[in-house]
Design a protein around this nucleic acid. Structure first.
Length: 300
DNA sequence: TAGACGTGGTG
DNA sequence: TCACCAAGTCT
């Protein structure tokens, strides 16, 4: 057995024993919700999981699947409903893009999620990662699924670096392709297994190397777990940013059941210039609709 | 291609 | 307390 094959065996076996039971991972032959379109369920989960922890996604995902079990169901709702049911997941433009994707799937693909990476990536809010994830997890397409977990695991395991590069590099993509098992069924499971290992064990700040099935082969551990020395991702600012103000404005509109007068939005932030700029940007983004007489609501 | 884009948990 | 982090995408 080659080194790569022993990695495959160890990580796939660890996944079988240690993976979380997540509803969007239930295989097609055991899918328990006949009215819910499984590729759609996978697609929605992947978009919700962008930059967002599993624990916060799961309840919202369940609500969405009840409300909108198919792309056509979501397309029949208003974009504002999607934004409201998005709740506090963050990055609410994802809700809008999901609604736009549902509309495109309904109108241009007869309501069927395309089992094709190019067509998937052409949908709003679906980039290279999500297209690959939906291709692999919904349709079993043989492809590499490279998220930040995979990049970090493979960086430590093979390259010996503590962290992945600040953004996806060609070298990381090549490495992921090199490590993909030859067997198609193994390849699909490998993608989710490496991701899960990164999420549960090979974590960014506090890796549990004791629990790692491949610690004996880990270049980073063998090198003495050296601290990172290259460029690191820049920390995001939050306090006082437009993102914070947009979040406060949208929170008011999400909770409202009737159009909201500007005076109710004025109280969420002290700086009128920034407040107005953010409201305008929300309207430009399609997240807010302006009505006559200085009233506002989520888009219909 | 950096930077914008939400939110809340954690050490 | 506060910086970092969580299955990225878009411009």
């Amino acid at each position: 057995m080659t080194d790569t094959e022993s990695l495959h065996d160890a990580i796939l076996q660890w996944y079988d024993e240690s993976a979380r039971d997540l509803p969007w991972r239930v295989p097609a032959d055991e899918w328990p919700w006949p009215e819910v379109d499984r590729p759609w369920a996978v697609l929605v989960s992947e978009v919700m999981l962008q930059q967002t922890p599993v624990a916060r996604v799961e309840p919202v995902w369940r609500t969405w699947m009840q409300l909108w079990p198919t792309p056509a169901a979501l397309a029949a709702a208003s974009p504002g409903d999607a934004v409201r049911e998005w709740g506090r997941l963050g990055y609410p433009r994802r809700a809008l893009r999901l609604h736009a994707a549902a509309t495109a799937i309904t109108q241009e693909h007869e309501g069927v999620i395309p089992a094709d990476m190019q067509q998937l990536q052409a949908l709003p809010g679906i980039g290279s990662y999500t297209a690959a994830a939906v291709g692999a997890f919904a349709f079993g397409i043989r492809t590499t699924v490279v998220d930040v977990n995979v990049r970090r695991v493979e960086a430590r395991l093979v390259t010996g670096a503590q962290h992945a590069a600040p953004s996806l590099t060609a070298a990381e993509t090549r490495l992921a392709e090199t490590l993909l098992p030859a067997d198609d069924a193994d390849a699909t499971r490998w993608n989710v297994a490496v991701m899960e290992l990164g999420a549960l064990v090979c974590k960014a700040t506090t890796p549990d190397c004791n629990a790692c099935p491949v610690v004996a082969q880990c270049s980073w551990v063998l090198a003495g777990r050296p601290a990172h020395d290259g460029p690191r991702k820049k920390a995001q600012k939050w306090h006082g940013t437009d993102r914070q103000v947009r979040g406060k404005l949208l929170a008011v509109l999400r909770e409202a059941t009737a159009p909201v007068p500007r005076t109710e939005l004025d109280i969420v932030w002290h700086d009128p210039g920034q407040r107005d700029r953010c409201l305008v940007s929300l309207i430009e983004d399609g997240l807010v609709e302006a009505l006559p007489r200085e009233r506002f609501r989520l888009p219909t």
